[in-house]
Computed example of a mutant assay.
Amino acid sequence: MTGVWVLLATLVVAVVAGLLLKARNGRVRAAKPAAAARDLAQLPTPVADALDPAAAVTLVQISTTFCAPCRHTRAILSALADKTDGLHHVDLDVTEQPEVAHALSVLRTPTTLALAADGRELLRVGGVPKGPELLEALRPHLEAGTAADAH
């Protein structure tokens, strides 16, 4: 009888863990204060080099070679950047550069960082982003960039 209770408890824990992971996947999160205060000089060189100074927001996708969801994320973000003014997308493969992921506190791939032209982190998404939700979260930053360009 003890084995049945252990099996049942294991099943419950697995289901709860699965539901939590599913709920967090693709969720847009605001940048932590330390990341939001970061500037270009504090970014790892490959990330700083990937920023587009002409874009209000650069989406930096942190990927690895063996990551299947990264391909889906690349398609979503590329399409979003192609149809949105002021938005640039770059896919950064960190398979051979784990120090870059470590410096950015990236624990999983894909992770998408939305960075301002000055290197400040605006938000991040762990997992495959939901395009409309991401665009909605970016809208104030894109509009601010457009207003700054008009002056």
Rank of each mutant, 00 (worst) to 15 (best):
M1V: 12
G3N: 10
T10M: 15
A17K: 05
L21R: 15
K22C: 00
A23G: 10
G26S: 11
A30K: 08
K32V: 06
A36H: 13
A36T: 09
L43N: 05
L43Y: 11
P44R: 07
D49M: 12
A50E: 01
V57C: 12
L59K: 04
L59N: 02
V60T: 04
V60M: 08
Q61R: 05
Q61W: 08
T65Y: 03
C67S: 14
A68N: 09
P69T: 09
R71V: 09
R71P: 01
H72M: 05
A75N: 04
I76Y: 11
A79F: 03
A79V: 00
L80H: 07
A81L: 07
D82S: 12
D82F: 05
K83M: 06
D85F: 00
H89M: 03
H89Y: 13
V90A: 09
V90C: 08
L92T: 02
L92F: 04
V100S: 07
A101F: 10
V106I: 15
R108V: 14
T109C: 10
T109E: 12
T109Y: 08
P110D: 05
T111N: 04
L115S: 13
A117H: 11
D118C: 02
L122K: 03
L122D: 00
G126E: 14
G126P: 01
G126D: 11
V128M: 06
K130D: 14
E136C: 02
R139H: 12
P140N: 11
H141N: 07
L142F: 01
E143P: 03
E143N: 03
G145V: 05
T146P: 00
A147M: 08
D149T: 09
